[in-house]
Amino acid sequence: MAIIKSLDLGSLESICKTLGETNNGLSGTEITKYLAECNIKDLQLNSTKWKRLYDALYSKQTEDRCSNNVLAFIKYVMRPSRHIHRKEWFENTRTELNYVLSFEGFELTESGELKQANKVQTFDEAEARAQNLRKTLLDRKIHPDVLAFCRAELLVDNYFHAVFEATKSIAEKIRVKTKLSSDGAELVEQAFSYKNKVPYLALNSLTTQSHQSEQNGFMHLLKGIFGTFRNTTAHAPKITWNIDEQDALDILSTVSLIHRKLDKVVEAKKMYEGQI
């Protein structure tokens, strides 16, 4: 393996603060376990979790004169199969780590791999992107549920992350409205399909061919969004798509339209029973 230069100590400190965050970070027991399994000595000079991590990783990086084992530790801790029961924590932590790692020219993918990424020099670069994107979207009267994803930490590398996270919010809104637990195309089918059954959600009364076509078209739109940005197997779009600001604006506008539609859907069963 090629030798990777040592991480900036500021970056290392931020990584340790993210992983060892007081309330939601790794537990003390987990820190002990993972350091031992990665053959990194736990100096135990501090009781504070993030400081314990920093002391151990700083010592290892200094001894190695490179960051290979530190990066390997991050990959080990962030292995997706380790966090199947706390997916939200995994995604939030990965986002925070990627903000820091982008200053080092790396990105932690959803599969838990580290890959090279465009190196960001200053937070101002990301903040400027976020402010510009937010202003333009406000001018477009974009749905407020979409604006939440125009954050600087999502834009340190490129616009893909803001778009990717915004599309995930669509699935979450459908799950909240239906109490379903699936995702992607399966979720869309379960929520909106009306063939031979009453759907969970309806855009309209579904009593005419035109109404049914609208419902069917909306299902295909949702499947297209999920198929492009929520491919949970290959994640090919994330690797190959270089989304610029104009792309992000257009896609987020579509996501905004979907949110507005979802805000107006009705529970089809209640509609048919005359409760709506």
Rank of each mutant, 00 (worst) to 15 (best):
R94L: 04
S111E: 10
L114H: 08
T93A: 09
E113A: 09
F103A: 04
F123H: 00
N118K: 14
K119H: 02
E110P: 09
V100R: 12
T122M: 05
N118T: 14
R94I: 09
L114G: 05
Q121R: 13
Y99P: 00
G112S: 03
F90L: 15
E96C: 14
N118V: 13
E107F: 11
S102P: 01
N92Y: 11
L108E: 06
T93L: 07
T95C: 07
Y99W: 15
S102Y: 03
D124H: 12
L101E: 03
N92Q: 15
K115F: 02
Q116W: 06
V100A: 08
T93I: 12
Q121K: 14
N98H: 08
T95L: 12
L114S: 05
L114E: 06
N118A: 08
A117T: 14
E91N: 15
G105P: 07
L114D: 05
Q121V: 11
N118R: 14
S102V: 01
G112Q: 01
E104H: 09
T122D: 03
K115T: 08
V100F: 11
E110D: 13
D124M: 12
V100D: 07
L108C: 07
E107H: 15
L108D: 03
T109R: 09
F106W: 14
Q121I: 13
E113R: 08
L114I: 07
F90T: 13
T95E: 13
F106S: 01
T95V: 12
T93F: 08
D124A: 11
N98E: 04
G105A: 06
